[in-house]
């Protein structure tokens, strides 16, 4: 078991012929992901690497295939249209890797998502991976190993750091999701915490947050009220100055709100096991699972 994706997930790639899209599609296929079709405007009736059929639109692709998930590499200026195309095609899981989508576009996407049954991950994220089964995204597959910890994060490489520690500590992972580093993202931590709580194989969840917004605080309220499984938390940005955007569009302390210390206080109060620094994430997980 795992959440959202597994070895049977049929994946579509939007923007499959672009530089990033083609590179990472190949990596996903090598990992074992069932990439069944791709979409690039005006490239219909061709194929990707002589194996994956390419269509002009999702509607065309849907006539030929059952699509469970889509991975989006469409450039930022067109990404919102690509996401809404996927929503209108009723694709259950939408994973948008694209970085740099304007916030106004994401407000519209969010409104469209709220009226749909689709779940969206990202944008500006590494994607989702179920260890040894299905990788939809740009994360390095080799660091992941099947195990019992679910991972949620607003970051990219910091997630790899956590996963690497969990794997080396022998804990392994069920599913890892980068929810995205933008101010407005498809789904908050809570959407996935709910699924991890229901997944029998997931024994604990690592939640990696950062400065900016209040997503971690809201997630911790949910954990307190609805979860029995231990949740381990880390917040990046204790040393970040106010008013500066720390790389991610969403990582900014504004008007004294969204600081790491404020978040950590709320998380701790709500029973999250805090990793004081990123090098002790796996150690904290072990302690939370009473494996010491």
């Amino acid at each position: 078991m795992s959440i959202l994706v597994n070895k049977n997930t049929n994946v579509l790639v939007q923007g499959i012929t672009g530089k990033e899209g083609s590179f990472h599609t190949q990596k996903c296929i090598e990992y074992g992901t069932k990439v069944i079709a791709g979409v690039t405007p005006f490239k219909g009736k061709t194929s990707f690497n002589d194996s994956v059929p390419v269509y002009n639109t999702i509607v065309e692709a849907k006539k030929e295939h059952r699509i469970d998930a889509t991975m989006i590499f469409v450039p930022a200026g067109f990404a919102a249209s690509g996401i809404i195309e996927a929503i209108e095609a009723e694709i259950p899981l939408i994973v948008c890797i694209t970085e740099g989508i304007p916030v106004m576009d994401m407000l519209n996407v969010k409104a469209a998502l709220n009226c749909s049954k689709s779940i969206m991950i990202g944008p500006n994220c590494p994607g989702i991976i179920t260890a040894d089964e299905c990788k939809i995204g740009i994360m390095p597959g080799f660091i992941h190993k099947k195990g019992g910890v679910g991972v949620l994060s607003r970051s990219g490489t910091l997630t790899y750091e956590a996963v690497n520690q969990l794997t080396k500590a022998g804990l392994g992972e069920t599913t890892c999701i980068g929810i995205g580093g933008d101010p407005i993202i498809g789904s908050p931590f809570i959407t996935f915490l709910k699924k991890f709580e229901e997944d029998p194989e997931t024994k604990a969840v690592v939640m990696i947050g950062e400065i900016g917004g209040t997503a971690e605080e809201e997630a911790s309220e949910f954990v307190k009220n609805n979860m029995k499984k231990p949740v381990i938390g880390f917040i990046a940005g204790k040393t970040a100055p106010a008013g500066k955007r720390m790389g991610h569009a969403g990582a900014i302390i504004s008007g004294g709100k969204g600081t790491a210390s404020e978040k950590l206080k709320t998380l701790e109060k709500n029973g999250i096991h805090i990793a004081d620094n990123p090098s002790v994430i796996a150690e904290t997980a072990k302690k939370a699972l009473n494996l010491f």
């Binding site: 990219g156 490489t157 910091l158 720390m246 991610h248 990123p278």
Partner: peptide
Amino acid sequence: GAGLAMATMDT
């Protein structure tokens, strides 16, 4: 990576 960069500063 931005998240790892922040986490590195903190560490």
